[in-house]
Design a protein around this nucleic acid. Structure first.
Lengths: 135, 135
DNA sequence: CTGTATCCTTAGGGATACTG
DNA sequence: CAGTATCCCTAAGGATACAG
């Protein structure tokens, strides 16, 4: 990968600064999605080629991991790694900003309020659930 | 602009999900930069065409504003708006994530520690300074 | 079900020159 | 100083077909 600088913001952008990667992370974090076809069905309609490319990159970065489904062994199951779960605070802050600035947001005001008023506890709880489900 | 969905994360990505916009915000927030030529000199070497395009978009989104410099009246001065300052928590979380995951990060461990250990106070202080300087 | 491969089109972006 | 304008090239992305 190209490396323009070692500014931490630039580092994050070089891994996730496109219009699709974080939507996959979102689906894994908040929508309980784990499989290829579920990502395809997301509201934003990613194409198969882009999805394949991003899954590969995110795995190469160590942000997600690929494994066989435990129930149906022929099925592939994607999970967040620790490094991926650590993105949670960034996603939460993006939900707050986007939810506040977009007049047409689909986010319930209730969610924003909860996230805002007791942020640390709120994030810790989600984080613990993610650890249970993914690691 | 295209609108793929009203998911707040997608909303944020559609405004800032490219490899340059947040670097301009960063320079305004943390590096005290205010002028066109200063943005050009940033470590990541943006080109004039891209810089011009992003400044225009960020202004159209209401994230930054253009004004005349108060000391040298012929000079253009860019500022963050309230909406732009509200991005601070996202940037801080990106600094933490990037700073922790990049082995070669330029970020002092001290900064990460401060940001992590008393996050709310830390952010509030920076925010108040930004309000003083930009609004 | 989980992908590749291919084709094609468009958007992004670098370099450079030029302007008020 | 603070930008446009132009040219050109590449990367990104959509559509579709195909494969293990």
């Amino acid at each position: 990968m190209e490396v323009r600088s070692h500014c931490p913001i630039n580092f994050t952008l070089e891994h996730l600064g496109d219009k699709w990667s974080l939507l996959i992370i979102r689906d894994l974090m908040f929508k309980g999605k784990r499989h290829y076809n579920e990502f395809l069905e997301a509201g934003e309609k990613v194409s198969t080629s882009v999805l394949g490319d991003r899954l590969k990159k995110l795995e190469a970065y160590g942000i997600i991991s690929r494994g066989r489904d435990t129930v149906k062994k022929s099925r592939i199951r994607y999970s967040l790694t620790k490094k991926g779960i650590d993105l949670l605070p960034i996603l939460i802050e993006m939900i707050i900003w986007g939810g506040e600035k977009d007049l047409l947001t689909e986010t319930p005001q209730e969610f924003i309020d909860q996230a805002t008023q007791n942020k640390e506890v709120f994030i810790r709880q989600i984080r613990e659930n993610l650890i249970k489900d993914h690691l």
